[in-house]
């Protein structure tokens, strides 16, 4: 402000001095306080408003981000849910009955990571009901099963044949195979002509967690060959009746037929040599059931020579006592 008055303005120095001497009023202190407080509130409201604004948009942002993450997780879970439901449905099917006359580990395909030895000794009795089950399966389910679990099926039922073709097949299932690549498993073990469709069927299994893959393999294997009580009671004859009804186009069925023929007619030395007495005995039983008593006796003789200390099961002992 100007300390000296504008020379253009009319001025009376004496009057101005008197005015300045007498006019000394000032606002009351409470008025000052009120105005200053109001000014601070007004200024404070700005930053407060800014803080509120920041907090008001950061909080929703954080909430939105959290919701997005949660939604993503939920969608992922939902994407995986159908497969789990499929597994649950499949697993809810009749569980594989314990093979009374077969070693328990052989009844279900052991995970490759666990099985040190391939399930070469699948008893024929366990295999033949499986055939019946496969024949009774709807084509879609069968194809699905083939796609998903050809290796386990093959390894369970056709392993002896595979062993007869190539002994070096055995290590294949031992591969660290949570992924259990079906081609890798089954390629060397295919029984020649019938096999290629099975080879082509499996799609590459995407690399996922081992647990889930093992579960899928188990599930599909069970869905392909759930040995029912009826089929088990039907033993060989029931299975035989079912085999012709199997669609010729089914690679698994044809493959099994060939394998069964191989097993029933001529077991190669290599396959027999590697069989345990119990497995050998099962094959002999199968020959007996097929009416090939001569071959059964020959196998029985070989079994006795190979395992002289092994005591024959009562049925085979009785069969050996019968006149040829």
């Amino acid at each position: 402000m100007n300390t000296t008055p504008d020379p253009q303005l009319p001025h009376d120095a004496e009057l101005s001095a008197l005015y300045r001497k007498l006019a000394v009023e000032e606002p009351a202190t409470d008025i000052d306080d009120a105005i200053l407080a109001a000014s601070r509130r007004a200024v404070g409201s700005g930053p407060r408003a800014m803080r509120w604004f920041k907090s008001s948009w950061t909080a929703p942002l954080a909430t939105a981000a959290t919701l997005m993450v949660a939604l993503s997780v939920a969608l992922l879970v939902r994407d995986h849910a159908p497969s789990r439901q499929e597994q649950a449905v499949t697993l809810s099917e009749p569980p594989p009955a314990p093979a009374a006359d077969a070693p328990a580990p052989a009844a279900a395909p052991a995970p490759a990571s666990e099985g040190a030895t391939p399930p070469l000794a699948e008893p024929p009795k366990a295999a033949m009901p499986n055939e019946a089950a496969v024949a009774e399966k709807p084509p879609q389910a069968l194809q699905k099963a083939e796609k998903k679990s050809a290796p386990p099926v093959f390894s369970v039922e056709d392993a002896p044949a595979a062993a007869s073709k190539a002994k070096d097949v055995a290590p294949a299932p031992v591969k660290p195979a949570p992924v259990m690549s079906a081609p890798a498993m089954s390629a060397p073990a295919m029984p020649a002509a019938d096999a290629p469709p099975v080879m082509a069927a499996p799609e590459p299994v995407p690399m996922r967690d081992a647990k889930r893959d093992r579960l899928q393999e188990k599930t599909v294997a069970e869905s392909v060959a759930p040995p029912t009580a009826a089929s088990r009671s039907g033993a060989g004859s029931g299975a035989d009746a079912a085999v012709p009804t199997a669609k010729p186009a089914s690679p698994i069925t044809s493959e099994r037929n060939s394998t069964r023929r191989l097993l029933g007619a001529t077991s190669t030395e290599s396959a027999v040599d590697e069989a345990s007495p119990e497995q050998w005995a099962n094959r002999i039983r199968k020959l007996i059931n097929h009416g090939e008593h001569k071959a059964a006796r020959e196998e029985l003789d070989k079994l006795r020579k190979r395992y002289p200390d092994w005591s024959l099961p009562p049925d085979l002992a009785e069969f050996s006592k019968e006149a040829p």
């Binding site: 006019a23 009023e25 000032e26 000052d32 200053l36 000014s39 601070r40 200024v43 930053p47």
Partner: peptide
């Protein structure tokens, strides 16, 4: 003060309070 400095207003207020008060009162 417009930009949020409350202290600026205090200085400003002290400069003009008495004169403005007298002006209005008179």
């Amino acid at each position: 003060y417009r930009d949020g400095d409350a202290g600026a207003f205090d200085v400003l207020y002290r400069r003009h309070r008495a004169r403005l008060y007298r002006f209005l009162s008179h």
